[in-house]
């Protein structure tokens, strides 16, 4: 359906709203990873710290990718406020478990925007979101793999486990 605002924007307004929510989720995830990186860095868990610093950058890049897409499609990207970032953790394993939960949350939110794009025939947004759907499979897999390391190396010193954390 061609609406009165079609010449100004190609993105569907409901998809735009969901993508703005997604920007906020990605930026919150970035800030959350930064808190995780700091916890690890302070305890000289260097590989884990490096892993989370990289994750923080990646999440921000994802947010920026969506931000630019919304504006390019004629919409209005909203710079989100990031509040209530948890900085308290009990163990390295619990951090990675939180990280997996966070990634699953991001995936579900991407699915929501993807489904809406499909529902309202916003093909450009659907195609754009396809990359994120695939990316999230990889993101979740990496964290699951790390949690497997904890199970396989149960009882080993934390520093040895940290050395097995992938940094690239």
């Amino acid at each position: 359906m061609l609406t009165a605002v079609r010449k100004q924007m190609s993105i569907h307004p409901e998809v735009m709203d969901l993508l703005n929510e997604q920007i906020a989720i990605e930026m919150k995830a970035s800030a959350s990873y930064l808190a995780m990186a700091s916890w690890c860095d302070q305890r000289s868990l260097t590989n884990s710290a490096q892993f989370f610093y990289r994750q923080a950058e990646e999440e921000r890049e994802h947010g920026m990718k969506i931000f630019k897409f919304v504006n390019e499609a004629g919409g209005a990207a909203i710079s989100p406020s990031v509040a209530d970032v948890n900085n308290d953790f009990e163990s390295l394993r619990s951090i990675f478990e939180s990280s997996l939960e966070q990634e699953i949350g991001v995936t579900q939110s991407i699915y929501k925007a993807f489904k809406k794009s499909r529902q309202v025939d916003d093909f450009a947004s659907e195609t754009f979101l396809q990359w994120f759907v695939t990316e999230q499979v990889e993101e979740e897999d990496v964290v699951r793999g790390i949690i497997d390391i904890f199970d396989l190396m149960e009882g080993m010193p934390l520093k040895m486990i940290d050395e097995k954390i992938p940094t690239e």
Binding site: M1, L2, T3, A4, V5, R6, P13
Partner: peptide, 11 residues
């Protein structure tokens, strides 16, 4: 209404 209704000149 502006965002969701079809524009008369477009239909």
């Amino acid at each position: 209404t502006i965002f969701y209704l079809a524009h008369p000149t477009f239909v």
